[in-house]
Design a protein around this nucleic acid. Structure first.
Lengths: 196, 196
DNA sequence: ATAAATAATGAACAGCATGTTCAGAATTAT
DNA sequence: ATAATTCTGAACATGCTGTTCATTATTTAT
């Protein structure tokens, strides 16, 4: 591990730049933020920025990559439901999630998040199928396209997260995860109690 | 109606600007496109642009507003399923839908589209409840938050549309609408055939 | 067909953010 | 303490933006 080798100044500078960027993007939107504003708020010279990042985009993408890695790590480690973990993670990092879900930054980070979610769902789903293979062998042969399911789920999760973070309805992560689970497992017919 | 009053030159110019913009955004991404490129491809002087629009953003937003108005109009007029209409509309205007769903442009047009879909779902849903009020009076009193349902549905629809337009799997609008309908009505448990 | 009205043009200009260079100052590691 | 690294600020070139204005071209109205 090369953890002790990095010059403190570098760590401090990059952290300051990320924090400044985050605050400014929330205040003004990504496009309106200038490098000068970022370095000024971070109490750094403008030239210093270019010693670390090529442009605004790269700085934002680094923050987002770290966030997504952190979410994936949580899911891998914890025993709780991945859905619950996602809502909790979003609540704890609400600012950055808002920036991502608003589609700030040129090459939309939502798509990166969407792909990660899709992939995670697919893995979890296949694990589930393996575990159930002896109980319901027909399940694996289901003709319904898996990609349609994962994209349906990734979309609905992102939709609920967006609404939850922007409109701030008074639901806990647990409640959100619960409602989401009911909707996608049993559909709105059963969940809302339609006569069939 | 002031349809015959508008100078032809204006109509031609605006159409040319929109077409040029659309092509360029698909080629290079919104941020990389310059006003000069747009007017050059449209065979117009750069100054002409500013006689019609304040900036790139405004030009793109006008196209998007027209597209969404068109979708809403189709849904209001036609008797087919709104879901099917949405997939068909997306297929017919794939380029613009891709631009929207990629989140191109500063103030993300996806959010405008999302709000429109949410609103439409809510209206359709309330109509449905009214129509069924005598058959299942309990339905209206369902305690499940309506907004959660509409945002769940809007998200999953946008998710499927994004995947469909970007990855171009060989499904027809009819097939996509069908799969979507099954998933949200009955959930993945029933749709995929899990033992309960 | 002609005149009046309107739109498009292109050159010129100011403003501003970007990104780079470089020599010197400040900080950190050894 | 000193060698290595990082930060700094001034200076500069570049490219896009947005505006002005006198001129030309096209359209509409009569």
């Amino acid at each position: 591990m090369n953890h002790r080798k990095i010059d403190r100044r570098i760590l401090r500078t990059r952290r300051a730049l990320k924090d400044a960027m985050l605050a400014l993007v929330l205040e003004q939107g990504f496009d309106a933020v200038t490098i000068e504003q970022i370095t000024h708020r971070a109490d750094l010279g403008r030239t210093t920025f270019y010693l670390h990042y090529r442009d605004k985009e790269e700085l934002l993408l680094e923050s987002i990559r770290e966030l997504i890695d952190d979410l994936v790590a949580h899911i891998r480690v914890s025993n709780s439901s991945p859905i619950l973990l996602a809502f909790q993670h979003a609540a704890e990092n609400a600012d950055l999630y808002r920036i991502i879900l608003r589609g700030e930054g040129a090459y939309s980070a939502v798509e990166r998040l969407r792909k990660t979610i899709n992939q995670t769902i697919e893995e979890l789903f296949k694990e589930f199928l393996q575990a159930r293979a002896d109980v319901e062998p027909d399940l694996i042969r289901s003709s319904f396209p898996l990609e349609v399911v994962t994209n349906f789920l990734a979309g609905s999760l992102l939709g609920l997260l967006t609404w939850w973070l922007e409109e701030r309805p008074p639901y806990t992560p647990e409640q959100m995860a619960d409602m989401f689970r009911r909707l996608f497992l049993d559909g709105i017919r059963e969940t809302l109690g339609f006569v069939r």
